[in-house]
Design a binder for these strands. Sequence first.
DNA 1: CATAAAAGCGAGTGATTACTCACTTATTAC
DNA 2: GTAATAAGTGAGTAATCACTCGCTTTTATG
Lengths: 223, 223
Amino acid sequence: MNKPPSFAEGLLQYVEELKDESEMTEKQRNILRASVKLFAEKGFHASSTSEIAKEAGVAEGTIFRHYKSKKDILLAVVAPVLVKFAAPFILKDVREIFKERAQKPFGEIVTELYRNRLNLVVANEKHIRILLQEAFFHDEIREALISTVFEDAKVMAQKLIEAKVDAGELRPLPSQAVFRAVLSAMIGLVLFRQVLDKDDYAAYSDEEQIAMTVDILLNGIAK
Amino acid sequence: MNKPPSFAEGLLQYVEELKDESEMTEKQRNILRASVKLFAEKGFHASSTSEIAKEAGVAEGTIFRHYKSKKDILLAVVAPVLVKFAAPFILKDVREIFKERAQKPFGEIVTELYRNRLNLVVANEKHIRILLQEAFFHDEIREALISTVFEDAKVMAQKLIEAKVDAGELRPLPSQAVFRAVLSAMIGLVLFRQVLDKDDYAAYSDEEQIAMTVDILLNGIAK
DNA sequence: CATAAAAGCGAGTGATTACTCACTTATTAC
DNA sequence: GTAATAAGTGAGTAATCACTCGCTTTTATG
């Protein structure tokens, strides 16, 4: 009775209420933009509403006209990114595309996946920063991230992997381990490019880095 | 001209000042323990000094008797973990061991590395949580982490990799890409075990998971 | 045992926090 | 054109923040 809304319910409910940017006032857009900037720089808790107001060129009261609490701003910032990440796995017609693609060699599928996700991350760097930061503390956000994005991706990926194993294209390893390898390589790619090793990464183009990563994923590093 | 202390200087200086737990008073140990608990649960900024005092069973004034500011507590919490992570790459005699090991097959070296680091993470879960969380915002911590731990590890690993390539044990890939593959697999292993996929991970033992990961790293997933 | 230093205390500090509310200005609907 | 609704304001609020300081208690030293 009255059990708290699950990941999908909570998120999707919020998504329903999500306004399109076009139907916001100028000031409201400024508030969001300022919040993204400050949250990404100093974190949610370290950014005060008075700072946000100043950065947005708005009275502090205006903020609470649009968002009933500070945390509400965070959700408004984070939800769209979560949706973008989750979308490919939620939307049915994209699943269809995935099915069509299942005929392609696994290497090509993964290459396309890495390319796609890398672009997504680069284009939404700040938002993703905020999303990850806050996923550390806010259970709702972390659970939404894992349940919505990760679990769905896992199910789809493992199906594909098992099919490819049956087709003799991949080695008969536990699909769990293969999925981890695919995802790890992707995370590593993003992490090195964006955080850890920017300089050395740039010695090759994105396309080359992806190709090397897929090559190693498929064929290993041993001679 | 008064240039800011580099990673190693700054860190090592702080480490010098690090008290051993044994030479702390009961209350001071309680303060640290309480801080670790709260920082891990709610983050640094969201934890107030009054909460820490209450959790530690101590007057708020006592905290500032031992730590001159709240941020000082964070550094006292984080520094020992940073040292643990960095130690293998800083200590010279460990480098020697690494040289001896260089004769072993690459797969064995990596297996040992994964085993070692996985234990480290499991044994220091909360501290590492705090370290990563705060590395997002505090430049000093992030830079210490990258400069001290990552860069040193990279240099050592790439030397080893290049030696193994020359010896014909590894494929002649850019050592950068190989290093990324090795580290990505390790991060993925930890991430799946601790955060993303606890349940399914447990279907195999740590030792089995490591073995599969190394197998995939060396030989790839393709047939 | 005497004395000094360190550890511990908690009421009190000004600054800042998220948020409210009575009010004004702009937009929409008929 | 006027009534109603929404958007915007900024002074004000109680609570909380990190931190201080005068004081007491404990521990170490000779």
